[in-house]
Amino acid sequence: MTTATQGILDGMPDPEPTDYQTWAAEVRPAFVTVARSRRRHWLTWQIRREYKLPEAPDPAHDWGRLMSQLAADGIVRHDGFGHTLDRSVVNAWRGTRDARKGRVA
Rank of each mutant, 00 (worst) to 15 (best):
P29T: 03
V76T: 04
D79P: 05
P54V: 03
V27P: 06
I75D: 01
V32E: 13
Y20P: 03
I47F: 04
A30I: 03
R39M: 04
W42T: 13
R48L: 10
R49Y: 12
L70F: 07
D79N: 12
A60L: 07
A25G: 12
W45H: 11
I47G: 05
R77C: 13
G64N: 04
L70D: 01
D58Q: 11
I75F: 01
W45D: 06
G74V: 12
W63H: 04
T33N: 12
R38P: 11
Q21L: 13
G64T: 10
R40E: 14
H61N: 06
T18D: 14
H78Q: 10
A30V: 03
R77F: 08
T44V: 15
S68R: 15
L70P: 02
H61R: 12
P54R: 09
D62A: 09
H61K: 03
Q46I: 08
V34A: 05
G74W: 04
E26M: 03
R48T: 11
R39F: 08
P29H: 01
H61Y: 08
D62Y: 06
G80E: 07
S68N: 14
E26S: 07
H41D: 11
G80D: 08
V76I: 14
A35K: 02
K52T: 12
K52V: 15
P29E: 00
T44S: 14
E50V: 14
A56T: 05
H61Q: 11
A56S: 13
T18M: 14
L70R: 08
D73F: 00
T22L: 08
P59D: 04
I47N: 01
S68P: 06
V32D: 05
V32K: 02
L66P: 00
D79C: 06
H41C: 01
D79K: 07
V27D: 04
P17Y: 13
T44P: 02
A72L: 07
G80I: 03
D79A: 13
A25W: 15
T22K: 04
V76G: 00
E50T: 15
R28L: 09
Y20R: 07
T22R: 06
L70G: 01
T33S: 13
A30G: 12
Q46T: 09
T33H: 06
T44K: 07
D62H: 02
T18R: 13
A71C: 09
P54E: 02
A35Y: 00
P57L: 00
F31I: 00
L70C: 01
A24R: 00
V27T: 07
P54D: 05
W23A: 03
V76L: 04
R77I: 08
G74H: 07
A71I: 12
L70Q: 02
A25D: 15
P59I: 05
A71M: 09
L66F: 00
R40A: 15
L43K: 10
